[in-house]
């Protein structure tokens, strides 16, 4: 569609071509499959900083974030043999587990029943394939930020409140003083637009 083509073009105009590092996760996956502790050590070296950033952003508290990151990596260690590279990338797996546990902690502090899935029940699509696996972190960061910048402010705020604030659609509706249907519509439009920008043709071409 032309709309998609324009979106891809706009991203390409904002960011430079990525540097590739395809093999970084493979040795870690092998070590984890063998239940080798150095696999977790290397996983932590590679993604510990990102995990800590996610937990700190969600919780706004570095001490609580430390606990969440430790819990998440221990959960990964204890279930490391269940990771299946065919189902998705290591990075989205780690990010999703840390994010879920951070939201869980946040909701626990608000005395709200958990809505996210525990690690062993998470649906395969949650650990979705990472179309930008191997692309340099700096490039991906810049591209995701550029895509978010292209969203209308109210859509960006909805994404922010839901993903990093852990708010449900009802809670966002209440916080933004908007009808529930408007919140649902904004979330849907924002996610579709981001998909067009981030998971479309461009990433596949760069990695092919």
């Amino acid at each position: 569609m032309s709309g998609e083509a324009q979106d891809v073009e706009s991203i390409e105009s904002v960011v430079a071509l990525p540097a590739l590092d395809r093999g970084g996760d493979d040795p870690i996956v092998e070590l984890l499959a063998q239940r080798d502790p150095t696999g977790i050590e290397r996983l932590y070296e590679r993604y510990g900083g990102l995990a800590f950033a996610i937990a700190t952003r969600v919780l706004g508290d570095r001490t609580a974030a430390e606990d969440v990151v430790q819990e998440a990596f221990l959960a990964i260690w204890r279930r490391s043999e269940t990771f299946d590279a065919r189902r998705g990338g290591l990075r989205p797996w780690v990010c999703t587990i840390v994010h879920h546990r951070a939201l869980d902690r946040l909701r626990g502090s608000r005395n709200v029943r958990r809505r996210d899935l525990p690690l062993d029940e998470a649906a395969p699509e949650v650990f979705s394939d990472d179309p930008w696996e191997g692309v340099s972190d700096g490039f991906v960061r810049q591209a995701v930020r550029a895509a978010l910048d292209q969203l209308p402010a109210e859509q960006r705020e909805t994404i922010e409140l839901a993903y990093f604030g852990g708010l449900s659609q009802t809670e966002i509706s209440s916080r933004m003083k908007l009808p529930l249907g408007t919140v649902k519509g904004r979330a849907r439009l924002a996610m579709r637009r981001l998909h067009q920008l981030l998971a479309g043709q461009a990433a596949q071409e760069w990695l092919s």
Partner: peptide, 20 residues
């Protein structure tokens, strides 16, 4: 699946933070 892929990319906007 599409929405899950997009959500999985959202944290990648963050700068990594050195944990203690």
């Amino acid at each position: 699946q599409r929405h899950a892929r997009v959500a999985a990319l959202l944290p990648l906007q963050l700068d990594a933070e050195e944990p203690p």
